[in-house]
């Protein structure tokens, strides 16, 4: 699959007929121990353009996002493609820009038919600066947890601020916002 993807990337320049990319977003057991260089995530940006200020801020930072996760594959959907995809998930209409991250090597469970990862609903944030802060947190999280066995646990602990440490972090953030 990696080979196919690489060839897809190479053929992105005008060419006759690029070979089809065989994409399977389901998680599977890694063949080798995970390293920081492992191509682990498929990242999709779904953005219909509904939330204009946040959309502009996110799109302006896509090159940076790509630079931080060169090992992974990033896909940017057009507004039309985003609308089509969100029709499958109507409850998230208006939550875009949404960054959807599929983990190729997530732990298996019956609940999500072996699709693992997480999503970042940036459209829920009205202020572009706050949205960028969350995007930075997301990039930091992905970089720091590339080799984690169970990403779901890390999301809860780190991003949802669960536990005592998370509570302290919430308080610290609240005090910073007040300043």
């Amino acid at each position: 699959m990696s080979q196919n993807k690489r060839s897809g990337r190479a053929d992105h320049a005008p060419a006759d007929s690029p070979p089809p990319i065989d994409l399977d977003l389901r998680s599977k057991a890694p063949q080798a121990p995970l390293t920081p260089q492992t191509e682990r995530f498929h990242i999709f940006l779904i953005d219909t353009g509904w939330n204009v200020p946040v959309s502009k801020a996110v799109r302006a930072h896509i090159p940076l996002l790509h630079q931080y996760s060169r090992q992974d594959t990033l896909y940017i959907l057009t507004p039309e493609q985003s609308v089509e995809v969100l029709k499958h998930m109507p409850e998230t209409i208006g939550h875009d820009p949404i960054v959807v991250v599929y983990d190729r090597y997530g732990s298996h469970s019956k609940h999500s038919r072996n699709y693992h990862g997480f999503r970042l609903n940036l459209g829920l944030i009205k202020n572009p600066e706050q949205a960028l802060a969350r995007l930075q947190e997301f990039v930091r999280f992905v970089s720091m947890n590339r080799t984690a066995d169970c990403l779901d646990t890390e999301v809860k602990r780190s991003l949802h601020r669960e536990g005592l440490q998370g509570m302290v972090k919430i308080l610290r953030e609240a005090s910073t916002e007040l300043l």
């Binding site: 995809v85 829920l124 999301v155």
Partner: peptide, 23 residues
């Protein structure tokens, strides 16, 4: 804001896979 996957993502996964596979 930060949501772990549930059934919804498996619904859009096939749509995304198709978009990529169709070029």
């Amino acid at each position: 804001i930060f949501n772990v996957f549930d059934r919804k993502e498996s619904l859009i996964a096939s749509a995304l896979e198709q978009l990529v596979e169709s070029g």
